[in-house]
Nucleic acid binder design. Sequence first.
RNA 1: GGAGAGGUGGCUGAGUGGUCGAAAGCGCUCCCCUGCUAAGGGAGUAUACCCCGAAAGGGGUAUCGAGGGUUCGAAUCCCUCCCUCUCCGCCA
Length: 422
Amino acid sequence: MLDINFIRDHKKEVKAGMLNKGETDIALVDRVLEVDENWRSLVTRVDNLRAESNVRAKKIGELMGQGKKEEAQKIIQATTQDKQKIKDLEEELAAIKKQREELLFRIPNMPHESVPVGASDEDNVVFAEWGEPDQAEWRKPHWELSDEHNWIDFERGAKVTGAGFPFYLGPIAKLQRALINFFIDEAERKGYRELQAPYFVNEDSARGTGQLPDKEDMMYVIPRDGFFIIPTAEVPVTNFHRDEIFNEKDLPVRYVAYTPCWRREAGSHGKDVRGLNRLHQFDKVELVKIVHPSTSFEELESLREYAESLLKKLKLPFRTLLMCTGDMGFTQSKKYDLEVWSPGQKRWLEVSSCSNFTDFQARRMQIRYKNGNGKIEMLHTLNGSGLALPRVVAALLEACQQEDGRVAVPEVLQSYMGREWL
RNA sequence: GGAGAGGUGGCUGAGUGGUCGAAAGCGCUCCCCUGCUAAGGGAGUAUACCCCGAAAGGGGUAUCGAGGGUUCGAAUCCCUCCCUCUCCGCCA
């Protein structure tokens, strides 16, 4: 969420930012400021009443200590009357506080000035391109290759669990392990600390990264124990430092974490769900950074470059999109998507999304630092996939296939696989 | 899952209804002293929010695992939940 003080001082900019993101209800801004005014005046009233009541309680204590019960009794009577008044006002205060927060939660993060203004994915800017997209007609989509070799079993997955929960067999299972290890090792070399995280989180954590309340339908839930199954490692890893205050000298912190991810993906269909294109469970290596506010946009560039370097090492042609304001999402200030070329499907597949959330998530999670003057300020959070497995596997199978049907193992993975052909 | 103990400030740890946001020690910061990598002395050292102030700062409220209750008054009493530890059971 945004800082209410920022909203008060930058009303125009906030409204403009909302419109650019496609949020048309800019009256929210006026409403939240109005509610905030009411809330603050009520806080003052309640605090004053409580102060008076505290003074009287203290006085009663003194009188009791001196054995003057009669006098104390008089004050007690006077105080009893105010008690109900305070209670009523406190209820009112709680209600208006909730209202204030709900309104605040509905105002999106401000897009950075470097983000192109646009309405939809058509306005995204191709930021970088690498390699030649292979247009050869003979290349098969990965699901055909997989069927020929019995590599990925979608049917049995559907039997055992449901659609979107495939089994990976033999060399493909090993390929995925190799990719996970390769990705983590690369990240470690770049100074990311590896973290193994829980796959379930509690409600506070789901709220912290913003899955709740807006994206509740995305997650699988275990109601009996109050858990949410993670849709991405971002959730546990960023929440790792929830409610903490860093020393400036300990910044930045960078983590890499492999986890499976579970997403309900309600309502998707057609070519998007064919093969490995969209699954309910998939593997991903995720990168999370918590950084000083002055460095976050540089950190975003290095995050993007790092993710790109993985595709280069795998020799997979890709393009990087700078997402426009309208296609960016609620919590991001700036975001890049990396899309790998799928030569079997002749289309781009998103394999990484690198975002700077500025202080939007940090404020919600209360991740802060103490600066040189002893002042406490919000940090900036970023994350990016490095990388998501299934579409990388899809592109890899399609790109590394030979006309005779064999599939070559990319050079950087050969030491992990112990072989040159799948 | 059963039985018991416990959760207090950066840490250790006092505090069982009143002047306790909280003793003491450690740590940390600043200052003084000391001619040496010691010791001593002094001050400061949680977070959020509200109000006043240009700022420095001042005032107020809340917070002693979380939430609710009793009371004029709760770290202290009651209820619910969470977490930690010990023993038993079970188990990868």
